[in-house]
Nucleic acid binder design. Structure first.
Lengths: 343, 343
DNA sequence: GTGAAAGCGCTAACAG
DNA sequence: CTGTTAGCGCTTTCAC
């Protein structure tokens, strides 16, 4: 698993070539103010002519610091996460960090392994979107080592002493359901996901709140759990149609499920929108181009990534303040997949 | 940009605690066969009780090796690339490497910066999907330092002395166009992309080959370049419709463009499939669930990632063989977005 | 301002 | 089999 040896130009060689000492060369390298222009140029010239490349690994070791950060998500090819990764990347990049990426595939064991590996790599901090239902033991371990960490998206139970970036899922699903109610729907389903996921619990809460507030009786049989995949969405349609008193609209756990649901509806000869209203969650870029276009709740994964990165940076440079929580305000994006209930 | 100092348990401390020397501890750590079980257990127990964490950075420095590899792509949130990343990740992961991810956003400067940064991090190797139109100078530099590198997806001009993983773009677009021809189409457009991209040139070649072979005269006005985005696809529809003798079908540079084109067609009141056949390229997962489902040419990004990772691994562990080229065979996936030309 | 020396945490020779 | 010694390439006191 290890790479082969490579011989590099060392700082010592640069120093020799420039006729100065290693320390002077080192200071020059990092732009120390007290190095006179003349010396600096000499060193810089030597560096260039020898083809010197800075060895960050050695530097980090010696200075006991780190310029890499770890990013742990569950799946890269899920658009929600890839947009999150992009947000993190772009922000951290500006700040001179490099990111070590890891994907858990939603396996707690894998998450543990990754966390540990990040530790071994001396990362300066970690951004993690915890696997569904992961306890805090796992994460606490990192904290114990003094590694700054910010949790993104999902929040394990009882984890108030971490920085957290998320979205107000309760408000988001509430506004979605309120919109459906305002359009005449009374029997509204909640599709996909499961209670292990913190965001699911919140979204269910918002769903219940909206219904209760509108004086609509809760029918638990309309809350249908299922895998968070397109396939899960497709399959759940059957259950909807088999229901003794079928719903006329649904809020889906996320866009991926919603896209599946729409596909399932079409397969059953129904038209998403006119025949059955569906709302998604996240507003992944695909939602806008799908047909019909998906009505959804924006959760701004890229912004979440950006905020997570900024928070982590602050923590790394030493703010010892209490944990911060950044909760983004979701937005309802109304598109074609919803319509008023025909009476 | 640097992380704060953390104090860790060192191998020395473990050794002291176990009553052995540093070297014995080190050997134990890595499962050296000649360490008796008794000593090993003692050391392992000490490691556990002190909470020792291996410092890969220090180890890599000392052994002049590396267990990280760099992965450079243009954009993470492009499904094609995120699937590629996933393939690389999963494979390299098994082999004990950790990946340093970088996104160029298709900027040559950024690519150069990233390549250089990877160097500074002492990566054991690099997988790169070069920015469109990048010359080889940039990449040659890495090679000069003896860093194994494999090129994925796109291949800069005259780069035969690198490992390369790609797909047979010529064959892919040829089979797509042949399919359209077999369905009665004669005026077939090629939409999106531009000549700087090696894959575009190849796809155009296949397009021309198929037409020529069928005895259809080439009409260069049907080759319409444009940005490789959904928006680019949407906008290109106007140009199609304004054409004096409009095409009846199109091969798009990739699925993203094709999705845009279909959207544009619908906006213009046309039904993709019956009114205008469209074929994409890549077969990103979205293509299968879109409606209408997109006919496309599979290029298997995840497999490309897997092969690239394996190739890189081989090169890192020291095969000094001549550069290998792995060219995957594309597959045409026929779905709803195509139909026979009504005569 | 610049150099000499020490050392980050680990591995690799070489003794014993 | 295990300990001793010497660095990997860099940063960091502390003298000069």
């Amino acid at each position: 698993m290890n790479g082969k040896k490579t011989s590099r130009v060392t700082l010592q060689q640069v120093a020799d070539h420039a006729g100065v000492s290693k320390s002077t060369a080192s200071l020059t390298l990092r732009g120390h103010p007290r190095i006179p222009a003349k010396t600096r140029e000499k060193v810089l010239a030597s560096m260039k002519s020898l083809g010197y490349v800075y060895d960050r690994v050695a530097a980090n070791l010696r200075s006991q610091s780190s310029s890499t950060i770890g990013l742990i998500i569950s799946e890269i090819s899920n658009p929600f996460f890839s947009e999150l990764v992009e947000g993190v990347q772009q922000t951290l990049d500006k700040q001179g960090y490099t990111v070590l990426l890891g994907a858990t595939g939603d396996s707690p064991t894998k998450q543990e392994t990754l966390l540990f590996m990040m530790l071994e790599y001396r990362v300066g901090g970690v951004i993690v979107s915890p696997v569904s239902g992961s306890s805090h033991e796992n994460l606490d371990q990192l904290k114990q080592w003094g590694i700054p960490m910010v949790i993104a998206t999902r929040e394990p139970l009882q984890m108030t002493n971490y920085d957290f970036v998320g979205v107000d899922n309760i408000a988001g699903s509430k506004m979605a359901v309120e919109y459906l109610i305002a359009n005449g729907h009374r029997r509204i389903a909640l599709l996909g996901g499961s209670p292990q996921i913190s965001t699911w619990r919140d979204r269910k809460q918002g769903y219940l709140d909206a219904l209760t507030q509108a004086g609509i009786e809760i029918d638990e049989s309309l809350v249908m759990e299922g895998p968070i995949t397109r396939k899960g969405g497709i399959e759940i349609v059957e259950r909807i149609l088999r229901h003794p008193i079928p719903p006329t609209a649904a809020l889906c756990f996320n866009d991926v499920v919603a896209l599946g649901v729409m596909k399932g509806l079409k397969a059953a000869g129904m038209q998403p929108g006119p025949d059955f209203s569906v709302i998604g969650f996240d507003n992944i870029s695909e939602s806008a181009v799908h047909s019909p276009e998906l009505t959804t709740v924006s959760t701004f994964p890229d912004k979440m990534g950006k905020h997570a990165a900024e928070l982590l940076h602050q923590r790394i440079v030493g703010m010892v303040e209490p944990p911060k929580r950044i909760i983004l305000k979701p937005e309802l994006v109304v598109r074609e997949s919803c319509s008023s209930l025909r009476l």
